[in-house]
Every structure is written in structure tokens, then in C-alpha cells.
Design a protein around this nucleic acid. Structure first.
Lengths: 342, 342
DNA sequence: CTGAAAGCGCTTACAG
DNA sequence: CTGAAAGCGCTTACAG
């Protein structure tokens, strides 16, 4: 492997011009004569010369690389955001690097700042639940980071975060889901998932309760079970509802925090001998690729993740400093049924 | 936003030392006296100084950033590889940037070489099926790329690719799956998915046919349907088998190229009134997170994607130039049943 | 143990 | 239209 690649000096001397001229044809400046441009381009091609973006970054202060901070890539929800961001970045000649969320809030050696070292052109941070004490630390990390590069947040961003952001209107989303289930005749609607103190869960609870109120349905505490947004926890949660309540009080519908939780609920329901969707309607959120292939195909809310990712990149690159609400749509499949009349 | 961050000069002058000394404490050299080290560290902390990795990269030739080229992040299979790579990279102080596969083989403006510009410390390329003419181009792109940085390949790498690689032994894997199904009494075993000319499909076909031969079962061409590795194509493929054959010839088991294809097969089977798994056993591959939540929970092959990603990073960082086989294990769930005796 | 100086590979005024 | 020169923010011999 020949790692001795030519530099701008090699090209300049071989083409018989100065490095300034080479730099000009590299950047497509029009002030170069046809003749010397061709000469330079020819030797660039012949030598397979590629200018170092590192050196460019040093002088021009632009690195054409962005960062994205994700809780976990394994949840396709985040993979979709990443993909949207990556595609938009690519259109603008930028790449995007992945940073683990941990680096932002652990008190380990290198907090937010291993990002800062990178001198990125900007970074997208997908926020997720944190215990209160760590929230404090995250915020100050982000403030520090912002001194080095633009930052935009995605997710259910708490109001005290004074950053440009794309936020989910989780309250409105929950209201719509509840209304949909009510329209199918459901009166016992459970809501599963979310960490109790988290902004996300808080906003969802608001919408959930709003929805119930609007339908003149009582809020029943046993129907609200908190937990992490995983299939396992979703299963556990529904297990506990079904285990603690007499059958006549069992919910006829359950709203899951996301599709992962919904998958766990479906499993729990099946294990309890419930027929889906006749005995239990389930609604998820995020509209993962597998939603149509679950049994029954899962009704979910599509939050347009790729669009969010792409929009975040635009905000970063345009220096927009706004707080926007992302849009979403319900995707009705077969996991909800009209409640059966007794 | 104050983008005027201090440089090593600022720190040096404020601490009353030379930039060489600051550089030394930055890199933890022991040859610095306790006293000046403390003095320097104090002013670094006070000014929130972060050395620029860009400038460092220029001098030291090490950028601490890796690249990964993926067909698509939306298939969790690749997200897992990425995650494994990212975690291993992190342990070594590196980040990893995502590059779309397209950039490697389209004849667009910037072929493989937008990667080269980045002067990465190495890049992982996950290979996937390409039409023969593009294969040629990919190979030459990779050879060019390799002049700039170490490259390791992951996947079903064709033998003519003379690169360090982590390869899947797809033939052995297929043999094991066939043997498993045979042990359940199956004799009519279909195999769905894969692009016919592709190395991956080729290797799998070898294993599939080996397996049949070993069980003294005939190879029946109608049971082998090619197609892209998506749920939609998987469904179409099984639809066509079930549509063209009399019921008595329907397969009792189907091996899907991957879990995505398997999901489509399950759907097709259900639509044709087949009970799963009694009437049709299904085996997938990749062991995606949703496999346990499909109906029935899908038996699949886990290829240890995170391990592959991590190993690839090690090879890159250690300059290992080997061709390794990745290991894997079958995860038996409930999607396969003994074939029902007539 | 510490500093002066060269160099990494570019871009960007500034002259001409 | 083109070149000489300074500068981007570091690291690394080389002296001392």
C-alpha cells in the first residue's frame, strides 16, 4: 500500500504552475485560463490526486462533516433519523459521524467534548430520557459544545433547553390516538411505556388525559403503566395489568409508547389468550419497518423520521435558530377493532 | 455563539510557556515538570481549551476517524454491524462516519474517492450484490481507495477481492439449516431470496444443494426463487410458488435469505390459509430484534453482527491483513414444526 | 525539562 | 490570469 499520495506541491510542480493555481482549479474558480486549467486537470487525473480535506479544514474552517448523537442505533427509529440526515448531508457534500449518547452525560473522561475536538460543522443531538441530575449535566455539556459548533436537538425537548430543535408534539399525537380508539367504541384504554419523570412521558400523559377527558372517560391509574421503551418492558407492563385486574376490567385497547413496546404488548396479550384485535386493540408509535408484518399488522404513528433528520441538517447548515414541530400521521392497519358489544 | 475558541498559542502565552510545552502536557508526555504541567493544565481548564483534531490530523497523519460504507442503515443487520464497529472504535478514541454505498459504484462525480479526501484511518465496506459491470467498477474504486487508507470488507466477499475481509460462510450456514429442517422430517424445502448472479446467493445455493444431497433429497427448481432481500419480494416469491404448484407439491418448509424475506413469507403463507408452523416451517437469517415478536417467533441464524463490526475495526487499527470467517449460531424459536404425518 | 523552528497540505489576500 | 507569502493549529525533531 502506497500511502505516499501526491500533495498540491507535487501537482503544481509537475504542471509547472504555483500551488495557488492548482488550488484555484481545484475549487473551480473561473479566473484560470483554459489552457492552464486543462494542464492542471490533466496532471491531477494522471496522478490520482485528491486534496486532503484535513488540510482544507484547517484553513477554511469548514470540515464538511457533521455529527449525530443517538441513544442507540439499534432502534430503527434512530436509524431512520440518521438516514435522513445522512442523505441531506450528502447533498451538501457533508458526511455524518455517529457519536454514542453516553459521551454526552457520563462524567467519564471525555464528556460532550470529544465532539468539540472534531471541529464539526454541526451536530444533531437526539434527546431521550435522563434522570434529573444527569439532565443538568447534559445541558451544560451542550452549552459548552455549542461554543464550538452549531447544535440542533431532536425529540421531546424540554422547554428549558434553549437550543434550536425539532420537537415532537406528543400531546397532540396522543389525543389523536385516543380519539381514534374512542371512535371504535373503546372506553377502557390503557397506556404503556415511558419513564415517569421524563418530558416525553409527561407530554404524552397530558395528551392521553386530554383525550380521555374529551371523550368523558375516567382516568384510571391502573391503566397507566410506566417503563422503558423495549419489547420486554412492554410485555411486562401488560402482563401486570392483566395479572392484577379481573377480566371484566381488562382494557379493550392499549396505546404503546412505541412499536417496540407494542410488540411486547402483542406477545403478552397472546399469552393471556386474548385474540388480536377482537379482544384487544393495540396502537404503536414510530411505524417501524416491521409494523406491517406483525400479527396483526400494527397501527402506528409515523413521525417522518427521515424528514426530521434531513430538516435538522438544513437547520445546521443554514444556521437557522428555530424551534419547529415535526409532523406525523397515523397509519391505520389491522391491530385495532371495534369493541365487541356484549 | 462565540466561535473564537482559544488555540494552543493562547494557552501557551497565558501559561507563560511555549506551545511545545503545552503540546506535551496535552499528549501526556512525562517529560514535563510537575510545576509547569499544573500551571498549563490549570489554564487549559480555565479557558476550556480543546485542541483541534483537524490540526492534529495534519501533522500526525492520524485522524482517529474511521468510515463505514453500508448498503442501507435501515436494515438492522447493518445497524448492528455499525454499532459493533462504533463501540470498538470508541474504545480506541475513534469515531466512525457513515458513507452511502452509492458513492462507491455509481459513475457520479465523486466515486469512492470522497472517502479518500477524508484521510480516514480506515474504512469498513459492507459488500452486497452488484451487477457484474458495476462489480468491476467497485473493485477498482476499492483499489484506488486503498492507496489512501486501510480497507476491510465485510460480507459475502467474492474470491477475486484481494482485501482483508470478514466473510460469511453462507454455504455452511445453509447446510445447517437444511439439516435442521430435515431432522424435523421435511422433504420439500424451498429457498427464497437472493440475486441469482450474486456471490452471496451462489454460496447459499451451494449449501442448499449440499444439504439436500446429504439428505438424499431431490433439488427441485420450482422451490428455488430468487429476488431482492425485502419483505415485499419475499412475499411475492412465496406467492408465486404457492400459486403455481398444486397443493400436494407445496413445500412444507421455506428457508428465507434473511429475516426480512422471512417476514414476507409468513405473510404470504397466512394469506394462503397456511397455519404456521404446522403447515409451513420458516427459517430466517440475521436474527433481527423483531424475530422473537413475529408470529410465530422466527427461527433464525444469528451472524453476530456486532462482533463482526468490532473485529473489522480491530483489523483496521492493527493493520491486520487477513481473511477471516465470521461465526454464527442458529436460534431456534417456534417457526418450525415437525412435518405432519399424513 | 523546555523552547525555537520547521513542517503538515491546504486557502487566501495581496501584488503584479 | 498567476505567483509569492502568510497563515490555519498543531507535532516533532533538534538544541540547549
Amino acid at each position: 500500500m502506497n500511502r505516499e499520495n501526491p500533495t498540491i506541491y507535487d501537482i503544481a510542480s509537475e504542471a509547472g504552475v504555483s500551488i495557488a493555481t492548482v488550488s484555484r482549479v481545484l475549487r473551480g474558480e473561473s479566473s484560470v485560463s483554459e489552457k492552464t486549467r486543462i494542464k492542471v486537470e490533466e496532471t491531477i487525473a494522471r496522478r490520482n490526486y485528491r486534496p486532503s480535506s484535513i488540510a482544507r479544514g484547517l484553513t477554511s474552517k469548514v470540515t464538511h462533516s457533521l455529527g449525530i448523537v443517538l441513544p442507540k442505533l439499534l432502534n430503527p427509529h434512530y436509524a431512520m433519523i440518521f438516514t435522513g440526515a445522512q442523505e441531506e448531508a450528502r447533498k451538501n457534500g457533508c458526511t455524518v459521524s455517529l457519536f454514542p449518547w453516553a459521551s454526552l452525560h457520563t462524567s467519564a473522561y471525555d464528556p460532550a467534548l470529544m465532539l468539540a475536538d472534531r471541529r464539526l460543522d454541526g451536530v444533531i443531538v437526539c434527546v431521550e430520557y435522563l434522570p434529573p441530575d444527569q439532565t443538568e449535566q447534559l445541558l451544560s455539556s451542550l452549552r459548552e459544545l455549542r461554543k464550538f459548533m452549531p447544535v440542533v436537538l431532536i425529540g421531546c425537548v424540554p422547554p428549558e433547553y434553549d437550543f434550536p430543535a425539532i420537537i415532537n408534539n406528543n400531546a397532540a399525537l396522543m389525543r389523536e390516538i385516543v380519539a381514534y380508539l374512542v371512535s371504535l367504541g373503546h372506553e377502557r384504554i390503557a397506556f404503556i411505556g415511558g419513564v415517569q419523570e421524563d418530558t416525553d412521558a409527561l407530554r404524552r400523559d397530558v395528551g392521553y388525559e386530554d383525550g380521555l377527558r374529551q371523550a368523558k372517560l375516567p382516568y384510571i391509574a391502573s391503566y397507566r403503566v410506566y417503563g422503558k421503551a423495549t419489547p420486554e418492558e412492554g410485555k411486562k407492563a401488560l402482563d401486570s395489568i392483566l395479572g392484577h385486574l379481573k377480566k371484566e376490567y381488562w382494557p379493550t385497547a392499549v396505546i404503546a409508547l412505541n412499536d417496540l413496546v407494542a410488540m411486547g404488548c402483542q406477545l403478552s396479550a397472546r399469552e393471556h389468550g386474548l385474540r388480536l384485535p377482537q379482544d384487544l386493540s393495540v396502537v404503536g408509535c414510530d411505524d417501524l419497518f416491521c409494523a406491517p408484518y406483525l400479527t396483526p399488522p400494527l397501527t402506528s404513528v409515523n413521525p417522518h423520521q427521515q424528514k426530521m433528520g434531513a430538516r435538522a441538517v438544513q437547520m445546521l447548515l443554514n444556521g437557522e435558530n428555530t424551534r419547529e414541530e415535526s409532523d406525523w400521521e397515523m397509519v391505520i392497519r389491522d391491530s385495532c377493532a371495534e369493541v365487541s358489544k356484549k
